[in-house]
Design a protein around this nucleic acid. Structure first.
Lengths: 201, 201
DNA sequence: CCATATTTATCACACCCGTGATAAACATGG
DNA sequence: CCATGTTTATCACGGGTGTGATAAATATGG
């Protein structure tokens, strides 16, 4: 048998090239030829690891969902139980910032995610990441708010997830761009307003 | 001279066909051939009224910005001065709902706007609508909050505009979809929390 | 009625795309 | 060293897009 190559790792490499192109050119950067060039491979090689263009897209969608899932899995709501005041705000802020564009890596990931979400409206291939993200994030946020003693967990989870989406689009997209500092400040102000006041005595 | 046709009206008709296609198929539905078919015209006719594909896109972008501008212009912050309690909430809610996807018409418009905003990240043609919208909305929201006696106008305007963006994407995009009722409820809860309490006595 | 300028309709070209089919290069196992 | 099956590279086809150029149809003004 010949040419020992880890197929899984190859696919990963190609998918990462696809991500770079989506960030740079939007969804239409994810063509087989462009992705192959970006990955330093020949079109035929890419097609050897991905049956279809659809298959490549599906892999990218799956990877995006997995990454966000991994980001969210790093935080468990149980660790928040009992926290009050600024400690509670800090903990929840750290949790939420995990999926906000606060550095280059997260900025790239949220950019790709936003492109996929908007595309999901008309192209079913992109649905999985959209649905998984929404469900996971909403669940985690709801659990976190519950652990921190927030009253209207459902309503506040809706509000916080909406705020997260809005902050993301305002930062990633070029409308004068919020900027990381104002993003953080806005989130912090919201968390302070939502979390219950410290118990006296 | 022949064939009296209002060119302005013709262009409007074509642009509206383009909007329908963007809603149905995303940005790639806005090709010259598809738009011509949707408008019931020949490709050559469309090209007679629009020099370029770029020109058609620019017209659509301008029209989108104008519509949103007209929506916002229907509300002047001065009418809010002095309102308190539920009356203030109602007035501000009505103002904000003007640009939220609460009915079919607004849903179509916000969908097109979202597609354009995301596209603006990589394609400069779409920039104008993005920047105009962000500036106008932020200004109007800030003025409204100021008129209603909110303390941290800048910070709260950032937060409310972010919430608007998030509610829009959550409703227009298919992640389990917020739905108009929960959208309205979430907005109302936020406004109640942000507006100052009624002055006693 | 006819001439004129506007409006409409076609054709052809080059580019990019996904895809099927096929041939070459390659490193390993015997 | 050779044969085997993996990996890479290339060609060709049909479909879609924007665009330039050109011909036909149309309705008005004289």
């Amino acid at each position: 048998m010949p040419a020992r190559i880890d197929a899984q790792q190859r696919r990963q490499h190609v998918v990462e090239a696809a991500f770079r192109l989506v960030v740079a050119q939007g969804l239409e950067g994810m063509s087989l030829r462009k992705v192959a060039a970006e990955a330093g491979l020949n079109i035929g090689s890419v097609r050897h690891y991905f049956d279809d263009h659809h298959d490549l897209v599906a892999a990218a969608v799956r990877e995006t969902g997995d990454r966000m899932g991994r980001r969210l899995a790093r935080h468990t709501p149980e660790t928040l139980v009992g926290l009050q005041g600024e400690a509670a705000v800090d903990a929840l802020q750290a949790l939420v910032e995990e999926v906000l564009p606060v550095d280059d890596a997260r900025c790239a990931e949220t950019t790709v995610l936003l492109e996929f979400m908007v595309a999901a409206r008309t192209k079913p291939v992109f649905r999985p990441v959209t649905e998984q993200m929404a469900a996971d994030l909403h669940q985690l946020v709801a659990d976190a708010l519950d652990a921190l003693g927030v009253a209207d967990v459902h309503g506040e989870a809706d509000r916080l997830t909406a705020l997260i989406g809005g902050l993301t689009i305002d930062t990633v997209t070029p409308h004068g761009s919020l900027g990381v500092d104002r993003l953080r400040a806005t989130l912090r102000a919201h968390l302070r307003a939502v979390l219950p006041p410290v118990l006296e005595g």
